[in-house]
Nucleic acid binder design. Sequence first.
DNA 1: TCAATTTAGTGGTATATGCCACTAAATATA
DNA 2: TATATTTAGTGGCATATACCACTAAATTGA
Lengths: 162, 162
Amino acid sequence: MDDTPKGIWDFCTNSALKRASRQLGQLYEDVLAPSGLRGTQYSLLSQIAHSKNASLRTLADLLVMDLSALGHTLKPLIRDGYVELVPDASDRRVKRVQLTPFGVKKQQETTDLWRKAQARFENALGKQEAEALRRALNGISEAAFAEAFTRAPDGSEPGATG
Amino acid sequence: MDDTPKGIWDFCTNSALKRASRQLGQLYEDVLAPSGLRGTQYSLLSQIAHSKNASLRTLADLLVMDLSALGHTLKPLIRDGYVELVPDASDRRVKRVQLTPFGVKKQQETTDLWRKAQARFENALGKQEAEALRRALNGISEAAFAEAFTRAPDGSEPGATG
DNA sequence: TCAATTTAGTGGTATATGCCACTAAATATA
DNA sequence: TATATTTAGTGGCATATACCACTAAATTGA
């Protein structure tokens, strides 16, 4: 028997996460394809629908995404008429993100496909497993986790032997 | 108390995975920064070191990555002299991927930083948790999972009530 | 009140990643 | 063997995502 690991993802959670993200992203995307939306785009539309009237900044923070990255990612969705940016009245720096009526319709229609992907995923992994996985992932996504990571010892501390 | 979920990642594993991937990717990348390598680049160098003499195709399959995407991602690493593509002698379609001596050195040096990130991560999440998470993620990354997903019922089947 | 600092967003550039069309080479098949 | 099919890789294009430099607006503080 050769149990030598074939890849670094056996040790490195970062690699494992990215690899799984490619795989699952692909699987979801195949199911969503008939809508003409990419997986990320559907997620974004859904989150915008969910966080009504959020600013770009707020949305970026929620998504753990760079502000400018969010701006770039929204470009195609704005171009295609699903999303619009509405300047805030009281703070002229702020732009609020909202779905157009067309975007609302698209998001709602595509949700049928998403449910299909969701059902397949939970059937393939198991409902309990899926739930547990989401919890673990969401824990990692929290700001508190980033702080814990940053403050955590990294093995380079001098031994406190005194 | 308002336990209304703030985001769709509470339901959608795909979104949760991508979001966590951004967060953890960022955390690892900050630690790796002094090396001048991006997180993905270090992972790739490490996997190439691990899968000695693999072809682009083989590597892409292992990484659950599109072949052309892998080719594109390697470009900067080849440009910077870390990686080279060596034509296979027996099958003239095939190119084998290998680290240059410079690439070997870089990968080895950067591993110190990676270990630091790794230690921080395991301290922040817990060793057991980290191990369990990697196992779950690697399960999803397997070809068998993709097949299970594709074959799984999606709720659109006619009820077999007869 | 006015200057210094912080915050929100934009545009440019680079990497990460996928699809498609295409070439070349190997393999299968008639 | 000649042709059809499959396989490996490349290049172009599009989206996803990050960083930096910059502008404009709000906030802080002397």
